[in-house]
Amino acid sequence: MPGVYLAAILVSAAGVAALDRRFRLAAFRSPRRTLLAVAVGTAFLLVWDAVGIATGVFVKGGSDALLGIDLAPHLPLEEPVFLAFLCYLAVVAWQAARRLPFAEDR
């Protein structure tokens, strides 16, 4: 079923955004810093992917869950969306962990 992977990423991102909004963890607390962190992290991971693709370490597997749109050889459309989600999730998780009672650096 084409697009199910992208839909899963977007639904997951919406869930993380809902938690972010409810607890004002990242984007709903400091939108510019969050956007910068997500953009830099995503760019770094895309470069990492490009190196992996160029060296033959990363290859695109066949899956009916992908839309079938490639941004470059072995780089499906879903990859940068997933990487941005991963970075956003990391920022939200980091900010949530900082609020734990035993976290020293608040």
Rank of each mutant, 00 (worst) to 15 (best):
L46C: 13
G15N: 00
G15M: 02
A8R: 11
V91A: 05
P80F: 04
G56I: 05
K60G: 06
A84M: 04
A43K: 08
G68W: 02
L86V: 08
R22P: 03
G15A: 03
L66C: 02
D70P: 00
Q95Y: 09
L46Q: 03
A43Q: 03
G3D: 07
L10G: 05
Y88W: 07
D20F: 03
L46S: 03
V81R: 03
A26N: 08
V4I: 13
V51G: 12
P73C: 11
A18T: 09
S30A: 15
A43G: 11
P2T: 08
F28M: 00
L6Y: 05
L36Y: 11
D105R: 15
A27Q: 00
T55E: 09
Y5W: 12
R29K: 13
P2D: 01
E78L: 03
V57Q: 13
V16M: 06
A84D: 05
W48F: 15
V38P: 03
V16F: 06
H74G: 11
A96W: 08
L36K: 13
L89R: 01
L36Q: 14
L6K: 01
A72S: 08
V38E: 04
A14Y: 06
D70Y: 09
R99T: 02
P76S: 13
L25S: 07
R21H: 15
L83I: 02
T42C: 12
E104K: 14
A18C: 10
S30Y: 05
G56M: 07
A65L: 12
L10K: 05
L66W: 07
L83G: 01
V16L: 08
G52E: 01
R24W: 00
F82R: 10
R29T: 07
S30I: 01
R106W: 10
P76L: 05
L89Y: 08
V51D: 05
I9R: 02
A72C: 04
A17R: 01
F58E: 00
Y88C: 02
